[in-house]
Design a protein around this nucleic acid. Structure first.
Lengths: 276, 276
DNA sequence: CGACCCGTTGATACGTATCAATGACTGTGG
DNA sequence: CCACAGTCATTGATACGTATCAACGGGTCG
C-alpha cells in the first residue's frame, strides 16, 4: 500500500486531536482515576485512525471485526426490514463504540452507517487491555463496563420514547439526549450544538414519517422550546423541554420522587420469600 | 431468623430444580465447554434462592444490589413515566439476569417487576468468578458476555418493533421471541408454550392500547397464525408468522440475503479512508 | 441551466386510542 | 349458599394522531 496523500494524513491527524475526542479522554482519565499506563493505552487510540465517507457502512452486523471507537462525526446503528423500512437503533457519537465489543463474533444484528464524514480509531488494544484481567488495567475494565451500561440506558430510553411517548415528546427527548451527550464530550455549549442530520434520519430514529417530523419541529419552534436551523440546534427553554419530555437526569443522583411505582398495589417485599 | 416452613423449603427446592433452569444449566455447560469447577459455580446458584410474589418489585433501578438470576416465573423490566404511562422494556425469563450486572452502582433506570410468582437466585458468586480474571473461569466470563450480547440484541428487536412495525407485526414478532426464548430453556415445545400474561401487560410491551391488543390477537387467530387460550399459546403456522414479522433467525447463521443495505448508494468501502 | 436533495405545507386516508358496555370467571364475606 | 366486587377478555362507536400523496420553493452541484 502506498502512503496516503498528505492532505488526508493531515486531516486525519487533526481529527484525532479533535475537540470532542481530547475532551473525552481527559474527562475519562479523571473520572475513572486511570493510571499513567492506562492513559497511555487511551492515547494510543489517536494513532490507528481511519476516515469513512458519508453514507458508508462502517460496520456490518454479524461480522467478526476489530473493535473501533468513534473519533469524529456522526453515525447510527440501524436495522433494515425486508421491505426497506429502516429503524435507527442508536446514534454513535465521538467516544462511542462503533460496534458491540462485548462478544467478538456475535450474531447478525444491526449495522453502523456514517451519517457524516467520520473518523474512527482501532480500539483493539484498549479492549485487550481491559479484558486481560491485569489488575493494572482495572480502570479500563470499569470504563468499558460503564460505556456498556450507558449504552444500555440509551436503548431503554429509545424504547420508552417509541413505545409510550407522543411524536412531540419523542423529538424533544431525542434533542435532550443529543445535547446531554455532546456536552459530555465538549461538543455542545449550554444552549447550542451542531446536529448534521436530515429530517429523514430523525424520522427513522423516532419512528415517524418525514412529514410529521417536520411538523413536530415547527411546532417546537412556535412553542419556544428550541430553534433548529441548518445543522444547528439552539435551545431556548431547557426546563420546559425537560418537563415536556419527562427527562431523567443522567449524571446527578435521582431523588426518589415518582419512582417506578404504579397506581396498583406494589410492595417491595425485601424478604417476602423463603430462603433455602 | 427462624427456619423457613417445611412447605416453603420444599417448594423452593423444587423450583430451583425446575425444568427450565436445569435444562439451561446443562445447555450452558455444553455450549461454553465449562470446566468442572465452573459447573460447580453454576450449580451453587440453586442454593441461594428466594421467592417473590406477583406484582412485587424484584429490583429497583439505581440501587446497588447483589446480582440475581431468574430461576422460575416471568418478570419484566419496565419504566413508568411521570403521568403513569408504563413501558415494558424487556421480559425476564428463567436464566436471565434480573438486573444489569455490568456496572454495580449504575444510574437510576428501569426496575424489574414479577409478573407471576417468581424464584430468583443470588448470582454474586457467579459474577465474582467471571470478573475475577482467573483463567480457570474464562468460560464463565464468556457466558456473561454472551448473556449481555443476547440481551442487547433483544433490546434492538424491541426498538425495531416499536419504531417500524405495525401492531400486527409487533404482536407476532413478540410471540416468536417468547417461543424462541422458552424453547432455548426447554420450556416450550415445537408449537406450544405457557404465557401467563394479561393483555394489558402485552400492551405495555408493544406500545399499544389493551383494546387494540385484543383486536390484534383475535385477528391473528382468524388468520390461522396461532391460538391463544388462557395462559397458553399454540402456534399454528410458524413459517407464516416468521414471514409476517420479518423474523431474524437467532441461532443459525444468517445468510446475507437482504442484508442491511438500502435502496440508496451504499458502499462498504473497506479502504476508502486514510490510515495515519 | 436542469437535476437533485431537502425542507415545507395542504388535503385526505388510515391506524390506533379512547370511551363505554357486556359477559365470563374468581375470590370473598354475609 | 348466594350476593358482591374485582379482574380480564371482548366488542362497538367515535375521536384523534400520524401516514400518505402531492405540490412547491430554496439551496447546491455538475
Amino acid at each position: 500500500m502506498a502512503v496516503s496523500p498528505v492532505l488526508d494524513r493531515q486531516s486525519v491527524t487533526r481529527a484525532s486531536r479533535s475537540v470532542g475526542f481530547m475532551a473525552l479522554l481527559s474527562r475519562l482519565s479523571a473520572q475513572f482515576r486511570l493510571s499513567q499506563d492506562e492513559v497511555c493505552v487511551l492515547d494510543e487510540l489517536g494513532r490507528q485512525t481511519r476516515a469513512h465517507g458519508t453514507r458508508t457502512e462502517i460496520w456490518r452486523g454479524g461480522r467478526a471485526s476489530r473493535p473501533r471507537i468513534m473519533v469524529t462525526g456522526w453515525a447510527c446503528r440501524q436495522r433494515i426490514l425486508g421491505d426497506g423500512r429502516r429503524q435507527i437503533i442508536d446514534f454513535v457519537l465521538p467516544g462511542d463504540a462503533v460496534s458491540d465489543w462485548a462478544q467478538p463474533g456475535s450474531r447478525a444484528d444491526a449495522s453502523t452507517m456514517a451519517l457524516t464524514e467520520v473518523v474512527t480509531a482501532d480500539a483493539t488494544a484498549l479492549v485487550a487491555a481491559a479484558t486481560s484481567g491485569d489488575r493494572c488495567h482495572s480502570g479500563l475494565a470499569r470504563l468499558l463496563r460503564e460505556m456498556a451500561a450507558v449504552e444500555t440506558n440509551r436503548l431503554h430510553n429509545q424504547i420508552v420514547r417509541l413505545g409510550r411517548q407522543t411524536a412531540y415528546e419523542r423529538m424533544v427527548h431525542l434533542m435532550l439526549e443529543f445535547h446531554s451527550r455532546l456536552q459530555a464530550v465538549g461538543l455542545a455549549s449550554e444552549d447550542k450544538f451542531a446536529m448534521p442530520l436530515t429530517q429523514e434520519t430523525l424520522a427513522d430514529s423516532v419512528g415517524l414519517s418525514v412529514v410529521h417530523v417536520n411538523r413536530t419541529l415547527m411546532q417546537m419552534r412556535r412553542d419556544g422550546l428550541m430553534h433548529l436551523g441548518l445543522g444547528k440546534v439552539k435551545i431556548v427553554d431547557l426546563d420546559l423541554m425537560q418537563a415536556v419530555a419527562d427527562w431523567m437526569p443522567t449524571d446527578a443522583e435521582v431523588s426518589p420522587t415518582s419512582s417506578n411505582v404504579r397506581r396498583e398495589s406494589l410492595r417491595f417485599d425485601p424478604g417476602a420469600g423463603a430462603t433455602a
